[in-house]
Structure formats: C-alpha cells, structure tokens
Design a protein around this nucleic acid. Structure first.
Lengths: 209, 209
DNA sequence: GACTTGCCGTTACCATCAGTAACATCGAGG
DNA sequence: CCTCGATGTTACTGATGGTAACGGCAAGTC
C-alpha cells in the first residue's frame, strides 16, 4: 500500500503520544489499583476511550506497552549499574537487586503487570527475558565446560523465583532489600548444599537468634 | 432463623454438591479453556448460574475451591509417595516431581489456577503452601545449625521457581519430566557454584561434575 | 388434607467493562 | 469553498459477573 512516508513528525508525534498514554496508565494504576479500567486510564490521560484505542489495538496491547516500558527501564538501570562486569556472581546479584529495587519503587505497577488479569502478553515478555537469561546462563555453563542443557529451565526458574519472591516481599517487607538479595543469591549460588555441612567455624553464620 | 443444628445430612449433602461443582468446573475448564464463564461452568454442572452462587460466594470462591482441591490432591500424592523419608534431597525431588506430574496431567487446570484472571485467592493458597514449605526449610536449616532467616524467602522462591518452570514446560515440553526435575534439583541443591570458575578458597565445593 | 419451612431450580434482570460505530471539529492545502 | 486526514466526542453493542424475584418440591406439624 502506498503509505507514503508521511513526515517523520507524524511518526514521532505518535510515539510521543503512546508514551504519554503509558505514563497515564501508570498514574491510573497508582490511583485506582491494578483493576483499572480503560475508561479510567483514558480519563487520567485527559481523553476518552476511543482515543486510547486509536493508539493501542486492545487492552493487552496497552499492557504490553507498559510492561515493555518497565523492562526497558530495568534493562537501562542494569546497564548503568553493571558496567562491564562479567563476573557471574555480580551479574546475578545486580540483576536481582535491580529487579527488586524496581518492585520496591513501584509496587502497584508491579502487581499490575504480573497479576493483571487475562492476557498472555506479560508471559511473552517474561518468556523473552527468560530466554535472554538462558543465553547468558548457557554461555557460562559452556565456559565452565558443563552441560548447557539446564540453561533454559534454569533461566525460567530464576525468573520465576525472583518474581515470586518479589511479590511476596512487597506485601511482606519483613526484611531489607539487601538481605533478601543476599538470601536469594545464596540459594541460587550455593543451593541447599551450603546448609547441609555443619561447618561451625565457617564464615560466622552462627546463630543470630 | 433458629439455627437448629440441622441434621448432618444437610451439611454433608452440601459439601457433596460443592464437590460436584468443583469437578464440573474442572471439566468446563478442560472443554472451554481457562477463560470459562460462570454460565459455562453452571451448564457443565447441569444447572444455571444462580445455583452456583448459592454454593460459592463469587467466582473467586469457586476458584479457591478448585485450587484447594488441587492442593489437597497434591498433598495427598506427596504423602503417599514420600512415605516417611526425611532426607532433604528426597523431599525436594519428590515435591518437585509430584508438582510437575500434576501439571503434566492436567495442564489446562493448571493454567486456569495460575493465570486465571483477577483474584488473589490463588496467591493466598500459594502463600500458605510456601509458608508450609518455609517451616520445613527452617527446620532443616536449624538442624544444620545455620541461620534460619532465609527460610521464608527461600520457600517462596522455590515455589515461584517450580511454578514458573511448570508453566514454561507445559507449553514447551522439550525435555522429559525426569530430566527437568533433575535440573531443578541441581540448581536448588548445588546452585551455580559448579559452573563458576573454581573459587580458590571455596574449600569443599570443588567440581562436583 | 391444608400450612409452614427450607432447599432447589428457573427466568429475567442489572452493572461493569472491553471494544466499536458514527458523528463533530479543526487545520492545511487544492 | 471544499476535501482530506487527524483528533476528539457521544452513544452504542456484547459478554460476563452477580442478583432479585418467582415457583415448585419434600417433609414435618396441625
């Protein structure tokens, strides 16, 4: 079809507008909880519903945009914080910490994304993230000359673990974030094995209570 | 009004009926997918909607009943299979395997429970299961004379991990269940430690491969 | 046998919400 | 002046969760 390349202005404007709506959706979620309706989001954006539907095919599409925005911010933050460290431990720790930091900063948005009704868009996104992680894990496994078979399963497992813990933690913030990150890191890094041997003299993990 | 203790018949009959409806819900899910409507469930049960609502306060209540049934079956199966083994490894392996076996047996029901729209009932249930697991984990940690602080976080993490992997696996059954269980067990038991460049001071861990 | 009581079932309705159709407006350019 | 395209609105449809109001059936009581 001859969509004659209308001036880039148009395209840019359109993206800007999408961004505004995504932001409005975030505000609406903050105000009305995770059960926001399209009407409420539209109202928050200062327009009415059909306008929203001119920019997003359906509600899932909006959800996806919000989620993509979230992921993008997460990745940006990760890039900032990670620098160029390739140490797997740091990768893991920083990844978990960033994720939980975002959860901590915007719990409602987080719940909106994870528990936001019927849609598989978030799943897709989580799946892509998991696949990304699987690549890294696979690399690390191969580098260590180990079977890379578990990579994908592990990746999904890690994502699920961190995500579930995040959800539990935002409603039960019984411990500071740093401690939680350390716990998860311990589990993912050394596993339960660390708990079996009774090395009483090892690094002072004695009995705090 | 005199709530004269009506004969236990009444109560029993009522519970039976609830059970029938739960089963009908399972069939309806199998037939219509995870987006079943109350009308469809009622039809599957051979009645109409208001009858359903005489037995369940709302849809969440029905969901909760279905989920509780699922968990009960899971626990029963666990009890059968576990016997009285207290070996943590076996506990973990059997728990994971039972869970994935149920996921494998009834994928639609599983998706229905986990991704079934707006409700926090499933969360509550998962939370209770996690808490249960946390108790066991805490015991094991204390037995090993280690800090039991991570118990709850770990429990939620394990549940989240297994659950997420289950979800990924039912849509991507690229490996047999046994292998998947082994992968998860490896990760939870020994962690990434085996894959990292050998840590010079790590003492016992070494190369388990 | 008629009368109350409690359960079971129905039809018909309401409210909410995603999504759409049709119309109104404004600015740019022939 | 009129068309075109983008933006906005009001007012609708359709599906679905949930409810109200009615009717009938079985059993104990007079």
């Amino acid at each position: 079809m001859g969509d004659r390349k209308s001036r880039p202005d148009r395209e840019r404007r359109r993206n800007e507008r999408r961004g505004e709506f995504v932001e409005a959706a975030r505000r609406a979620v903050a105000e009305h909880g995770i059960g926001v309706s399209m009407d409420q989001i539209a109202a928050e954006a200062g327009v009415t519903k059909p306008v929203l539907y001119r920019h997003f095919r359906d509600k899932d599409d909006l959800y996806a945009a919000v989620a993509a925005d979230f992921v993008q911010r997460l990745l940006a933050e990760l890039a900032t914080v990670l620098g160029d460290s390739r140490d797997p431990t740091e990768l893991l720790r920083t990844g978990i910490d960033c994720y939980l930091a975002m959860v901590e900063r915007d719990p409602d948005l987080y719940r909106f994304l994870t528990r936001s009704a019927r849609n598989s868009v978030i799943d897709d996104l989580a799946g892509r993230v998991s696949t990304q992680i699987a690549v890294v894990v696979g690399e690390q496994l191969r580098e260590a000359r180990r079977d890379s078979g578990p990579a994908e399963a592990w990746a999904h497992g890690i994502v699920g673990m961190v995500s579930a813990v995040g959800e539990w933690w935002i409603t039960n913030p019984v411990i500071p974030r740093a401690a939680l990150v350390q716990y998860l890191l311990d589990l993912l890094w050394r596993g339960f094995a660390g708990m079996a041997p009774v090395r009483t003299d090892a690094g002072g993990a004695g009995r705090p209570s």
